[in-house]
Design a binder for these strands. Structure first.
Length: 493
DNA sequence: AGTGCAGTTGACTTT
DNA sequence: TAAAGTCAACTGCAC
């Protein structure tokens, strides 16, 4: 049976291997592979030039891969619905194929407009999952098992020998200027594309995975010792499935620690999939609006000028690399949310732009988790001085990124204000005092009436079944408040 | 050689 | 993927 043109819409899945929408579309008929550069997307406050640069390199790599199989990748710029409608009018479209995307609120709204357009035009839109994230999830029960099932599916090989469509101009990739992106120098950024992603994967599994556990916490080791695959997974140069399956060919603590992180990747994205407003709204209603934006504090934090050396070094390294290890991300967020008491939405947008591997679901879940607003996790306030001593004991990292501290002797490097006699600038906040105040504020809210009732509901909806069982204390107290029989009894007493 | 004591370590709790 | 506090057990040392 002959079908009409199958439009495969590439989003953050910039590869030919393990691309089920592409493979399924090819089984139906001639394929038009399309990437839509959306200027409005790139003007969103969580997007940046460094992300576009990585995406653009990945697209160039994909263009080459398509050229090798005989059909150019088609690039168009503009609003997605406009571009799709033009394609429909000019070429006729029988079906639209893509991966499911759990993006930000903007891409969610855009997908709804595309869905409405497809419905109106009678064009079926086949969206297939590429991660362990489940659409329209009813319960978290059995989630981990489903994740394993999906990740265990056979890898779809790259197609070969496509029949080229004639008379369609391939189109050009716009530059930063054309997208009006703000200058965003990032000298040590990883480069995009599947070729480099595979290189990183092979090198990680062959040489670096053994030392993985030892390297992840220290900013001195992490840039080389971590997998460094996150950006390639975010932009889809590599599929999660192939990364997981390849890594399971190996054994050891490093491999199991790494693959459990792939599992957590999907666990966190699932939260945003289930509840899109968590991008800007605190999970727990009692946590909403508790912090305030202070411009001077925000600027000092964002520019790596807080006066706390380890915090500043991390922020400056992040700006220059477009990446930093997990623990240091958590510390930067913790410092902003607790010590500086800044709203996580504002600081989260800044971090989002810094991350080449920005993945909305992970990012916003983590921002909230490191700000204590989820209510289902215990609050974790990082002490940047202790973190510095633990993970940068000789101060090499601080010296690398804070040249202004050149003449400070090693013993004072983590807290140069302790160097008596020198007119050393004080940090913008006292770490110990501000941490204690933040802790008191959070626990005051957590003690307030009705807090646990919301927290239990959040745990029910978003908590991991595997490890996130409510604490004994909470379980006990929630039984008291949710079981009407016992509640009556306790009220009587 | 046993006792007292300051200091350390580790498990556990609290915030 | 926190940090600080508590407490008991332990250690090294002086006497």
């Amino acid at each position: 049976m002959v079908h009409g043109l199958q439009l495969v819409w590439f989003k953050r899945d910039l590869r030919l291997v393990d691309h089920q929408p592409l493979a399924r579309a090819l089984a139906r008929g001639p394929v038009l592979p399309l990437y839509i550069v959306e200027p409005e997307l790139w003007s969103q406050p969580d997007c940046s030039a460094r992300q576009w640069a990585f995406c653009r390199e990945s697209l160039q790599d994909l263009q080459e891969a398509f050229a090798d199989v005989g059909q150019p990748l088609i690039i168009r710029s503009g609003d997605a619905v406009d571009v799709l409608e033009r394609a429909r009018r000019q070429l006729g479209i029988s079906a639209l194929w893509s991966h499911e995307e759990t993006g930000n609120a903007w891409t969610f709204a855009r997908d709804r407009r595309v869905a409405a357009w497809a419905r109106e035009r009678g064009i079926p839109w086949h969206e297939l999952p590429q991660f362990g994230v489940v659409r329209r999830l009813q319960t978290r029960r059995g989630w981990a098992r489903r994740w394993e099932e999906r990740m265990g599916e056979a890898i779809t090989p790259a197609p070969t020998g496509l029949t080229p469509l004639s008379g369609i101009a391939p189109g050009d990739l716009p530059t930063n200027d054309a997208l009006a992106l703000k200058a965003d120098p990032c000298p040590y950024r990883q480069r995009g594309g599947r070729r480099l992603g595979l290189q990183e994967l092979n090198d990680f599994l062959a040489h670096r995975v053994q030392g993985y556990c030892r390297s992840i916490s220290s900013p001195n080791l992490a840039f080389k010792g971590c997998s460094r695959l996150s950006a390639y997974i975010t932009w889809g140069c590599l599929s999660m499935r192939e990364v997981l399956q390849r890594s399971r060919e190996f054994q050891g603590r490093g491999v199991s620690s790494f693959s459990s992180r792939l599992h957590w990747h999907c666990h966190f994205i699932q939260k945003l999939e289930d509840q899109p407003p968590i991008e800007w709204e605190d999970f727990h209603p009692f946590m909403r609006g508790i912090r305030s934006l202070d411009d001077a504090r925000f600027a000092a934090w964002a520019e790596g000028q807080t006066g706390v050396p380890f915090v500043d070094a991390c922020m400056r390294a992040l700006r220059a690399h477009g990446w930093i290890n997990f623990r240091m991300r958590a510390m930067l967020m913790s410092f902003a949310s607790y010590n500086l008491w800044l709203p996580w939405r504002d600081t989260g947008l800044h971090l989002a732009r810094q991350f080449v591997d920005y993945e909305p679901g992970i990012h916003w879940s983590q921002c909230q988790m490191q700000s204590g607003s989820t209510s289902i996790n215990t609050i974790r306030i990082y002490n940047p001085i202790k973190q510095g001593h633990d993970h940068d004991p000789d101060g090499a990292f601080i010296r690398r990124w804070c040249p202004e501290l050149e003449d400070v002797p090693a013993v004072h490097l983590h807290e140069p204000w302790s160097l008596l006699g020198a007119p050393r600038s004080m940090p913008i906040v006292d770490c110990a005092i501000s941490a204690r105040e933040a802790k008191e504020r959070i626990f005051e809210i957590r003690r307030s009436a009705g807090f646990d009732r919301h927290a239990d509901a959040i745990q029910q909806r978003h908590g991991s079944r595997r490890s996130g069982l409510p604490s004994t204390r909470r379980r006990r107290s929630s039984r008291l408040t949710t079981d009407p029989g016992i509640e009556q009894l306790t009220l009587d007493l």
